[in-house]
Amino acid sequence: MTNSDTILIIDDEVQIRRLLEITLSANGYKISEASTGKEGLVHAATTHPVLIILDLGLPDADGIEILKKLREWYLKPILILSVRSSEDDIVKALDNGANDYLTKPFRTGELLARIRVAIRQSLDASDDPCLTFGSLTIDLANHVVKKNDELVKLTSTEFSLLALLAKNEGRVLTHHFILKEVWGMGYMEQTQYLRVFMAQLRKKIEDNPAKPRLLNTESGIGYRFGA
């Protein structure tokens, strides 16, 4: 695979940077490194990275602050890679514009997959209203969902939910975000709706609802469509 895209790593740990550099270079990415938040902001502006990997615990600033500053102008994916594993931290980062997160220690395979998904999403501006995931097709324009070429009957809320998740394939969506998008601002705390509809949706589109392949739970945070 040849890939000349630059990825910016903002992390103060040399060993993590080295590991990322080896892994990502081997996968054809160019690497730009920064060990502090300030340096990271400068590099982000100068090296035009296609994706930024950001650590939350930086020596000079809180990662969330850096994230907010980046998001003022940087539109491409930002992936959080942090030892902070508390759900609150993760949700906060996602709500502040991070596309995805991974906690340290992490599997490099998983990291690469997340990077690929994030980059693809950011590039994929296709207006193709038909999304296909294995045996499942979703026709966004006509509100039609088919599984193994059979029509799946969905209520309008179920469809909205599925559509939102499918459009953000591979990306974690927080409970709040989903509730806001599907039900509206007033329902942001009504997580029980989300649970019920999710369970129903799984029964309708998953091969084995007990082992979901498409509608994955991110415990305490939200849901992720696909891998």
């Binding site: 759900e87 409970h175 029980q192 989300l194 649970r195 999710m198 609802p209 007990a210 082992k211 739970t217």
Partner: peptide, 17 residues
């Protein structure tokens, strides 16, 4: 504890996974 609505199927799946 930060209780929230929870589908126990989800719980079981997560653990098995």
């Amino acid at each position: 504890p930060k209780p929230d609505w929870c589908d126990v199927h989800d719980l079981a799946n997560e653990v098995a996974e």
